[in-house]
Design a protein around this nucleic acid. Structure first.
Length: 565
RNA sequence: UGUCCCGUGGUGUAACUGGUUAACACGUCUGACUCUGGAUCAGAAGAGUCUAGGUUCGAGUCCUAGCGGGACAGCCA
């Protein structure tokens, strides 16, 4: 997928950010736009980041501008190379290309240091000797002004000297910080002399031991955007209150002013989006790593079987605005189904097998039946399906006592076997405990699919697999990770209390059609009448694929049955 | 009782920038079709735009006040 294809793929919906860009282009403020995606490499990207990635890269593509990838790596205590690698992989997989514009906030540490000196010389920054606790205590509260630090009015010379010593490693962590000198009485807490640099005797994943003072995000971010000549700095709502600070820095430094525009982050029902909480699921082994197919991470969705196209379409559909929102997961699910419906090869697979013996079918006969690979796209061709006297059907497709409107198999009733014949259930065989273990049926030879030799109709069609040609495999049925819509919403309760105990069901006795033997890692299928599945990239072995359920098919019978209860 | 932001069907986003009976998508519900109870097609229900005033010939769009929700008191980002 190249960037041009992405540009053409969807009817981009208008939104307030596009309105601003259109205006800036129209009135000549800019002739080209430049955005950036600025992740912190302290965790894996999730679907919420996907929204931001699609926004920033999508805008650049649409307006023939540029989008940088910039890692905000200002805190060496949390950041790791593993995360930068995963982030790059995920963005690429989503279909976006930052070309040679891979930047790091740490690339600007020298420049930032010079900027800091400039502010000190202007009397707009000072070295403070207060402890972290003292700084907190003197910051004030939202309703009362803070107090000025007793060290606030050190001379420029003294500040320069102390700052130099900070940089040279002459002090312990916490002894000194560099603060902007703004206004301790500002109604905006961010303007109450924010910390610009702190001492951290930590090695950085890129700069090694070169620095022992590290810039705070608020001090680094705006200037990084400025250095990169970002025209539109798009970020989430929580940075709205920080904008006056970023503008202040840029103005005092007299450097290029990017325009920051805030938008509402994505929230998804039945999902958590907090990186910290996702990390705790991983570290607590509550899930199978960052790429567990139930995780809302991009790597999890990828392993689950989601396609980049479906995620891009989803990101477009959720819209862009400033109000808080919670998108229904069903929209995400709709997006994959929509994509896979057109692309996924249909196959037959039995999840919970029930043996059926067709009593009037010749013992040793095997027929090769032709099956369409995708009725939505005939160019995907056909394949051969072996049929014989003994087959498996899904237990769900048989009821000894059929409820009303049940169109499947039950004693004395008939159903069509997909691509094969209509059969009638004559007898049931049970084991000692009374469980049905086998069905005896007769088939109607003149009802073969496509033959047109019979006018016999069956109300339902079910899938099946020939017993002696079966290919046995493990199938993992994934469901939503949480059983409540808003796992973080409940006051005083930990989100892990709402983990869905049935979010993973492993089926070891699934009977699949033989063509699946050659399924490739990551390949996606529609198991007819059941759902979309993909070959797990982690647990599959040569000739022994493990299938993940991506999403079920829409199931109107389930609704009827549900309504009847 | 500070500053900033937000308030349109169940959910999300629109509304030519002040101009018909507020549109689209998901979801829901009908019906048609069907060898996937899938897909598809046709249709329906569901908001009078948080409230109250005001400006205007005309307000979801502008103004004022109120109400409701959110963000901010890390040497995190």
């Amino acid at each position: 997928m190249n960037q041009e294809e992405i540009k053409n793929e969807s009817k981009k919906q208008t939104n307030f950010i596009r309105d601003i860009i259109d205006e800036d282009l129209k009135n000549g403020k800019h002739t080209k736009i430049h955005t950036r995606f600025p992740p912190e490499p302290n965790g894996y990207l999730h679907i919420g980041h996907a929204k931001s990635i699609c926004l920033n890269f999508g805008l650049a593509i649409d307006y023939n501008g540029f989008c940088n990838l910039r890692f905000d790596d200002t805190n060496p205590t949390k950041e790791e190379q593993e995360y930068v690698d995963s982030i790059k992989e995920d963005i690429k997989w989503l279909g976006f290309d930052w070309q040679d514009r891979e930047y790091y906030a740490s690339d600007y540490f020298d420049q930032l240091y010079e900027y800091a000196i400039k502010l000190i010389k202007k009397g707009k920054a000072y070295v403070d000797s207060l402890t972290a606790d003292q700084i907190r205590e003197t910051r004030g509260t939202p309703t009362e002004a803070g107090k000025e630090s007793p060290y606030r009015n050190r001379s420029v010379e003294e500040n320069l000297e102390l700052f130099d010593k900070m940089r040279n490693g002459e002090f312990k962590e916490g002894d000194y910080v560099l603060r902007a000198k703004i206004d301790m009485a500002s109604p905006n807490l961010n303007m109450r002399d924010p910390v610009m640099y702190r001492i951290l005797h930590k090695s950085h994943h890129r700069t090694g031991n070169k620095w022992c003072i590290y810039p705070m995000y608020d001090w680094a971010h705006g200037q990084s955007d400025s250095i990169e000549r970002i025209t539109h700095s798009l970020c989430t709502l929580e940075f709205e209150n920080h904008r006056p600070l970023y503008d202040w820095f840029v103005q005092e430094l007299e450097i290029y002013p990017p325009r920051q525009i805030e938008f509402a982050r994505l929230n998804l029902s039945y999902t958590i989006m907090s990186k910290r909480k996702l990390l705790s699921l991983v570290e607590g082994k509550l899930v199978d790593g960052w790429d567990d197919p139930r995780m809302p991470t991009i790597s999890g969705l990828r392993r689950r079987g989601y396609t980049p196209e479906s995620i891009r379409n989803f990101s477009e559909r959720v819209g862009m605005a400033k109000r808080e929102n919670t998108i229904d997961v069903s929209l995400l699910e709709f997006s994959v189904r929509e994509d896979l419906n057109l692309k996924a090869k249909r196959v037959m697979a039995v999840m919970n097998p029930l043996k059926v013996v067709i009593t009037n079918y010749p013992d040793d006969q095997t027929e090769d039946l032709e099956a369409v690979n995708n009725p939505e796209d005939l160019s995907m061709g056909t394949r051969t399906l072996p049929f014989s006297k003994e087959i498996y059907i899904d237990r769900d497709d048989f009821r000894e006592v059929p409820p009303p409107k049940f169109h499947r198999l039950s004693p004395g009733k008939e159903v069509r076997l997909r691509y094969a014949y209509i059969i009638r259930c004559d007898a049931i065989i049970k084991d000692n405990s009374g469980e049905v273990i086998e069905l005896r049926c007769t088939y109607f030879a003149d009802t073969k699919s496509g033959s047109g030799t019979s006018s016999k109709k069956a109300k339902g069609t079910i899938h099946w697999v020939s017993a002696k040609h079966v290919f046995q495999a493990e199938v993992r049925l994934y469901d939503r990770l949480f059983s409540v819509e808003d796992p973080e919403g409940e006051e005083g309760k930990d989100f892990t209390e709402f983990l869905n105990p049935n979010s993973l069901e492993i089926l070891n006795n699934c009977k699949l059609e033989p063509s699946l033997k050659s399924a490739l890692s990551g390949e996606k299928f529609q198991f007819e009448r059941i759902g979309y599945f993909c070959v797990d990239t982690k647990y599959s072995k040569e000739n022994s694929p493990v299938f993940n359920r991506i999403v079920t098919l829409r199931d109107s019978w389930a609704k009827i049955e549900q309504a009847g209860k």
